[in-house]
Nucleic acid binder design. Structure first.
Lengths: 123, 123
DNA sequence: AATAGTTACTTGCACTTTGCAAGTTAGTGG
DNA sequence: CCACTAACTTGCAAAGTGCAAGTAACTATT
């Protein structure tokens, strides 16, 4: 990973500051775990972009691939602590939008009031 | 402005979710007001991108152009309430980076503890 | 009056990233 | 052997970005 500067804000954006990465994370917070579930999100992410971003997030340690079945072997993507810790960023983005952009969906209470730890439980 | 969906998170990112817009806002929070001051930021933004983003932020009402002198007429860019309200987003991005990215600059106490209102004072 | 300096952009072009459609791979089930 | 499903990969056009050079509107200097 290459950073434009040592500014902490710029460095975070170097990682997740593009058109899709934070939305992929949002999907996971909202329950998407499998590749196909991500494709159902309302914004309509392209398959190549999704594959690229999942690989990036895994390489950077924000999500991890966990097998959910063998025969055929299939994986799902889960948040690591590093990824889950971006929850406050998504919450503040949502809060801003609710105040300044008219006619948006209301985020769930559960989403707005949860903490990163809440998304780390195993099952 | 076109939105990919009515998701509040996606909608905020439609506005500021590219490689530079949030860094231009960070500059303003850190005191850059004039075009030339923005060009001094450590990431080295290109002049065309900067002009484009300042125009976008003004068009969307996050910043406004205020004359700081006549003869020759010159303007500076200041945060509106809408723009200043993105401060918590920048603060959470910085907080995440300090926890998860090694060897970053420490943001100033002033920046991390300020509130949007603090950047709206006239002078 | 002509020249140089300052500030704030604009333009042109190469390069990179994104978006869309179609194709591929690895497996199961019939 | 064939259809089916999930998870990608590939090709290519379009949009966005990065770099260098150029322009515009003044002011200050000689």
């Amino acid at each position: 990973m290459e950073h434009r500067s040592k500014c902490p804000i710029a460095s975070t954006l170097d990682l997740v500051g593009d058109r899709w990465t934070l939305l992929v994370l949002r999907n996971i917070f909202r329950g998407s775990r499998r590749y196909g579930e991500h494709l159902e999100s309302p914004e309509g992410i392209a398959t190549n972009i999704l594959a690229d971003r999942l690989a990036l997030l895994e390489r950077e340690g924000l999500i991890e691939k966990v097998a959910y079945q063998t025969r055929p072997l299939r994986h799902e993507y889960r948040l690591t602590r590093k990824g889950a810790d971006l929850l406050p960023v998504l919450q503040t983005l949502a809060t801003w939008s609710m105040k300044h952009v008219p006619d948006r969906w209301a985020p769930s209470e559960r989403f707005m009031h949860s903490r990163p730890e809440d998304f780390l439980a195993q099952d």
